[in-house]
Simulated assay, not measured.
Amino acid sequence: MKTLYLVRHAKSSWKHDVIDHQRPLKGRGKRDGELVSIHLKGQIKPPQLIVTSDAVRALTTAQYFKKALGVADADFKTNHELYDFSGNQVMRIIKNLNDSLDIVMVVGHNHAFTSIANMLGNKYIDNLPTCGFVMIQFDEKSWSSISTGKTIKTVFPRDLK
């Protein structure tokens, strides 16, 4: 069985004069990152690997989950190809995960993550909100074989406020 955790980056700030890739989280994004990650601690098994977009807002969001879920530095990777809004590169990364891994968290961007959550899960999500979490399980032994799985859990910041 394979379990995929999808996390859309938390709310970013538009106050800074930086390129999109360098946009940081705003205050609400930082609070939501901490809120959702701490809420999930003890409710889910820690991922064996976290792979995150290297965009500042996604990387910072992923670090909240890394800390709350106790993921080791060696099991925390950035991948520039996750700076993807269509989902094609994200799916390629998921399908090429090492089959020795059973639980993986991927942190990235919309519109890709809403599309992927709907394509891979069996519960329709209109829009995966910022810092939204989706857990999907697949009755497969290989990541390359996954198709439609079962949406087990969703946690959105608004559910916790």
Rank of each mutant, 00 (worst) to 15 (best):
Asp75Arg: 13
Phe76Tyr: 15
Phe76Pro: 12
Lys77Leu: 15
Thr78Asn: 05
Thr78Leu: 13
Thr78Val: 09
Thr78Ala: 14
His80Lys: 14
His80Asp: 04
His80Arg: 14
Glu81Asn: 13
Leu82Cys: 13
Leu82Lys: 11
Tyr83Gly: 08
Asp84Arg: 06
Phe85Ser: 10
Phe85His: 13
Ser86Gln: 02
Ser86Ala: 12
Ser86Leu: 15
Asn88Val: 12
Asn88Ala: 12
Asn88Glu: 14
Gln89Val: 04
Gln89Ile: 08
Val90Ala: 14
Met91Thr: 12
Met91Asp: 13
Arg92Ile: 04
Ile93Gln: 12
Ile94Gly: 04
Lys95His: 13
Lys95Pro: 07
Asn98Ala: 15
Asn98Ser: 15
Asp99Ser: 11
Asp99Val: 11
Asp99Tyr: 09
Ser100Cys: 07
Ser100Ile: 09
Leu101Thr: 09
Asp102Lys: 14
Asp102Trp: 05
Asp102Ser: 15
Ile103Glu: 03
Ile103Trp: 02
Val104Ile: 11
Val104Thr: 06
Met105His: 07
Met105Glu: 05
Val106Met: 15
Val107Glu: 04
Val107Asn: 06
Gly108Tyr: 01
Gly108Asn: 09
His109Thr: 00
His109Ser: 13
His109Val: 01
Asn110Asp: 00
Asn110Met: 00
Asn110Thr: 00
His111Arg: 03
His111Asp: 02
His111Ala: 01
Ala112Val: 04
Ala112Asn: 02
Ala112Cys: 08
Phe113Ala: 00
Phe113Gly: 00
Phe113Met: 01
Thr114Val: 02
Thr114Lys: 01
Ser115Cys: 02
Ser115Ala: 07
Ile116Gly: 01
Ile116Asp: 00
Ile116Asn: 00
Ala117Val: 03
Ala117Met: 09
Ala117Asp: 02
Asn118Phe: 03
Asn118Asp: 06
Asn118Pro: 08
Asn118Gln: 06
Asn118Arg: 03
Met119Pro: 01
Leu120Ile: 07
Leu120Val: 11
Leu120Cys: 09
Leu120Gln: 10
Gly121Ile: 01
Asn122Asp: 15
Asn122Thr: 10
Asn122Gly: 09
Lys123Gly: 03
Lys123Asn: 11
Lys123Pro: 04
Tyr124Trp: 06
Tyr124Gly: 01
Tyr124Phe: 13
Ile125Cys: 04
Ile125Pro: 06
Asp126Gly: 08
Asp126Cys: 05
